[in-house]
């Protein structure tokens, strides 16, 4: 059997242990049998992959176990791993499709806010691992505004920054679920609201943080993240509200270190 096919069958054996490739020998027939059954020998690899990875993900995404218990979390994650195994050796990026999987996962049907909570967790993990780009300082911004035509000021966001919106109170829910005071505090509403919650995830220094935003702040930051210049982004926000305080917005977010300092163009 060619090596590529051997590896494909081995993968199927590990991720779907009952599978027997059509038209060829079962993978177990390729293994040397002795006093220890081949199935027990292969179980070492299945445990390493499924148990090891689901335990690691459960640690990264504690809200799943906090909501449904350890068994629920491990079962959900094992099924996800079998259905959508990692695609690269960089496991920090793994799990981007997990919220969609949970949305269609029948045992989680009673937890409709779980996909958005997991999205928040994943963004926090991504922020922790994001590249170490430089933040824009107050003086950098002053210089930028002096040197550029005001309508052409661009404020790209750092790679650690992401934005989320949800009909659920995901900010309060996560804080509640992971709080040691759980049970003594008032549980946040789990009923979807007509007004979305807007969340900013960022990493000012080494640790990721997150906070809620007003709709105007969210849409302005979203436009900046999309590469829209400040003036155009602002004009869109001003359509909805006339009393938006740009100076306070800029100051607060410079303090959060969310804007990226542009890398000088080496050709200039």
């Amino acid at each position: 059997m060619k090596l590529a096919l051997f590896q494909q069958h081995f993968q199927e054996e590990l991720l779907t242990p009952s599978a027997a490739p059509a038209g060829g020998p079962g993978f177990r027939d390729l293994c040397i049998a002795d006093n220890i059954p081949v199935s027990e020998r292969l179980r070492v690899y299945q445990d390493n992959i499924l148990h090891g990875l689901s335990a690691k993900m459960s640690e990264r995404l504690p809200v799943i176990a906090a909501l449904g218990g350890d068994d629920f979390a491990l079962c959900l994650l094992r099924q996800y791993i079998c259905q959508s195994p990692p695609q690269s050796g960089c496991l920090a990026d793994y799990g981007r499709t997990l919220p969609d999987f949970i949305a269609g996962y029948a045992p989680a049907a009673a937890l409709p806010y779980l996909p958005d909570l997991v999205k928040l967790e994943l963004e926090i993990c991504a922020a922790e691992q994001a590249a170490d780009d430089l933040p824009l300082s107050h003086s950098d911004l002053d210089m930028l505004q002096q040197n550029a035509e005001s309508e052409l000021v661009y404020l790209p966001l750092r790679t650690s920054v992401s934005l989320l919106s949800s009909p659920y109170q995901i900010y309060e829910l996560r804080a509640y679920l992971l709080s040691s005071a759980q049970g003594t505090e008032v549980q946040p509403s789990i009923v979807p609201s007509t007004k979305d919650t807007y969340v900013l995830i960022y990493r000012p220094f080494l640790k990721a943080e997150y906070c809620t935003l007003s709709p105007e702040e969210y849409f302005l930051l979203h436009a900046l993240k999309e590469g829209v210049c400040l003036n155009d982004a602002l004009s869109k926000v001003l359509v909805a509200t006339l009393d938006f305080d740009l100076a306070s917005f800029l100051s607060a977010n410079l303090n959060r270190r969310i804007f990226a300092r542009a890398v000088p163009n080496s050709e200039e």
């Binding site: 060619k2 090596l3 051997f6 590896q7 494909q8 081995f10 195994p85 690269s88 050796g89």
Partner: peptide, 22 residues
């Protein structure tokens, strides 16, 4: 060892058959 096929990267060091092709 190996970890990756064309459609997955498994988080383990998997064994190889010790053949000329390997």
């Amino acid at each position: 060892s190996w970890s990756a096929t064309g459609n997955a990267h498994l988080n383990d060091l998997l064994p190889l058959p010790y053949t000329q092709e390997t």
